[in-house]
Design a protein around this nucleic acid. Structure first.
Lengths: 342, 342
DNA sequence: TGTTAGCACTCCAGGTCATCGAGTGCTAAT
DNA sequence: ATTAGCACTCGATGACCTGGAGTGCTAACA
């Protein structure tokens, strides 16, 4: 257990290091107003804090830097109670100018978050599987091509273009689409395949000739797995951080960020509310000296998405946490209003 | 005018520098099989080439590196005739596995291009304005929200979600959409607005109450300028190039790449066929020590798009040019087949 | 007993200096 | 016209020094 004084010193060191990115020495701390002890006393305390694992040295006679354990303690016990909602209106003001769609809200939020923090923001769109089917449509383009369009009650639109195999009759496709619209309206996308398979198949078989081929085809058009959408803002902000001057680290980072699937993997097992992953607490090796702070947001349709900020372990945790808190609140609100039609 | 020998030496120097990224000295050249002169002779020729502006020195006693003029000459007179179509099947093989849509073809091509070259690939989707209107649709989601969907004959789908103002009647919207579909079918998107304004407006006014508001609204939904789609692959490849170890250069580069509009600006005034822009020949300052090589491709619908590779001025011009040549050919072919329905 | 002043020690950053090697330009010989 | 030879230049590298920031420890002090 830490004493009051150790706690204070740990806080000052981390605050200072977050600002400067340089190891913090005892003299610098002693000079602070909040501190009324001599450098020597601080040194003793720092030695203790290091022994306990909250601080580290870069070499024998250097100042101290926070360890991951130190950051963890800082986040859990020092700044946690200080979360404010003072920024509560930041996003709202920006959204006032008429951003309507879910995707636009999300994209704009990513942009703003990264601009406000100088970190990289990542937003996962709401998982569309909870959304309910509004309409399915097949529109012929030419004799052998068509475009399929699927619309959900949340305004989400999926579409694909296809060539139509010679052995499928357009009229059959049409019939099938009619049946599907009739029977699958209002079904959450996540159950679409199941419902189709169990309750609708027999209808299709009944009304449509050469059922097998057309069915397989339909399945391909509408029910292919669609990944969650990812919005990233401020990728270049990483370059501003002094700890990432090493081009090798940068390369693996940027390579990862180019692959949407890899980015999504960063969020495995994310839970409700705010979550802080410091350094090696992140599963992915590429970001083992980054910190990832995530928060969830909700749409009116009971879907949830994730907003996150990615930066060096030396992150402005206090600011980022309160900001994410505010944003998740505001996004939830904005999307709820939109969904309910105001 | 350059002599045979100067030409040969210039070629060897540039080839060598492209490989190694290090200034090339006279001895290194003399050792080459193709060269039957002593280092001293080479030195004299190099001095001449430098005087003429094709070569540069990094300092008084360094080897030579090509100047931008040197690269320009190399591209225009030395390698131009060597373009082959040997890679003609690269993309085809990849597309065989069933990539159907225009967007998928384009995206895949960007990926492959950057992987094959280790440069950054940029592809502009075909300008959709040439595409013709297939269908307009408004689908109500809730009482006060709707989604608009616009489909072209090329399978391109644009959609937006909207809140419906209280003072617009859904029934009016519906009427208007019907009229639009009737009158604007087959019209190229680029003329949509014009045609709407001149030929269709009076119909709308006739049949729809409270015409003004609804019309303004409609205009907003369907006829907002949509930028060309941009696909970028291999952004992280830039980090592999020794000349871009400087983090400051990287920052401006990556910041630019995050902004689609900025990326599109790079392609102002691009013309039919292959085009090479070396260093400061590029208008944009950010890429003034990059080279940008562009080629055009076509879809069956007479639309054209652009594929490009962005790398250091020390680029493998020969390889890149022949590759872009092949890709533009193959993409044109693949898209033509798709459009014509095979 | 907790705090602090003092001091020896460590290590890094930065500057100077000598050296080496790759390269050039010029001159004179072929 | 070509080339061998030579003096010269410059960057990269490593050895060495110094100053400064920082530590840990000891002993003195309240």
């Amino acid at each position: 257990m830490l004493t009051e004084r150790q706690l204070l010193i740990l806080k000052v060191i981390i605050d200072e290091f977050i600002k400067s990115a340089n190891p913090v020495g005892s003299r610098a701390i002693a000079k602070k107003d909040q501190i009324n002890y001599s450098a020597a006393t601080i040194r003793n305390e720092m030695a203790d804090l290091e022994e306990m694992g909250y601080l580290e040295k870069t070499h024998t006679s250097s100042g101290r830097i926070p360890s991951e354990k130190g950051y963890r303690y800082y986040v859990d016990h020092i700044i946690a109670p200080t979360i404010k909602r003072s920024e509560i209106n930041i996003l709202n003001k920006i959204l006032e100018n008429g951003y309507f769609e879910v995707e636009q809200v999300v994209q704009k939020a990513a942009e703003v978050l990264s601009r406000l923090t100088n970190y990289t923001s990542i937003i996962l769109g709401p998982a569309i599987y909870e959304a309910k089917l509004k309409q399915i449509q097949i529109l012929p383009l030419s004799q052998h091509t068509a475009v399929s369009i699927l619309v959900t009650d949340t305004g989400h639109v999926e579409h694909r273009s296809f060539s139509i195999p010679f052995d499928i009759k357009p009229s059959d496709l049409e019939k099938m689409v009619n049946i599907l619209n009739d029977r699958l309206y209002g079904v959450p996308l996540i159950y679409l395949h199941e419902k189709l398979h169990h309750e609708v198949v027999h209808l299709l078989r009944k009304y449509v000739n050469d059922f097998e081929k057309a069915y397989a085809y339909l399945d391909m058009m509408f029910f292919q797995e669609q990944p969650v959408k990812v919005y990233v803002g401020g990728k270049s902000n990483i370059l501003l951080q002094p700890e990432f001057r090493d081009v090798n680290k940068l390369h693996s980072f940027y390579t990862m960020m180019e692959d949407e699937n890899e980015v999504i993997k960063l969020f495995q097992r994310h839970e409700e509310g705010i979550q802080v992953r410091i350094g090696k607490e992140n599963k992915a090796d590429v970001i083992k000296d980054f910190s990832l702070i995530t928060a969830t947001y909700h749409t009116g349709g009971d879907q949830t998405g994730t907003i996150a900020l990615l930066g060096p372990t030396r992150m402005e945790y206090r600011k980022v946490i309160s900001l994410l808190n505010a944003f998740s609140f505001e996004m939830t609100e904005a999307l709820y209003l939109w969904y309910k039609g105001d």
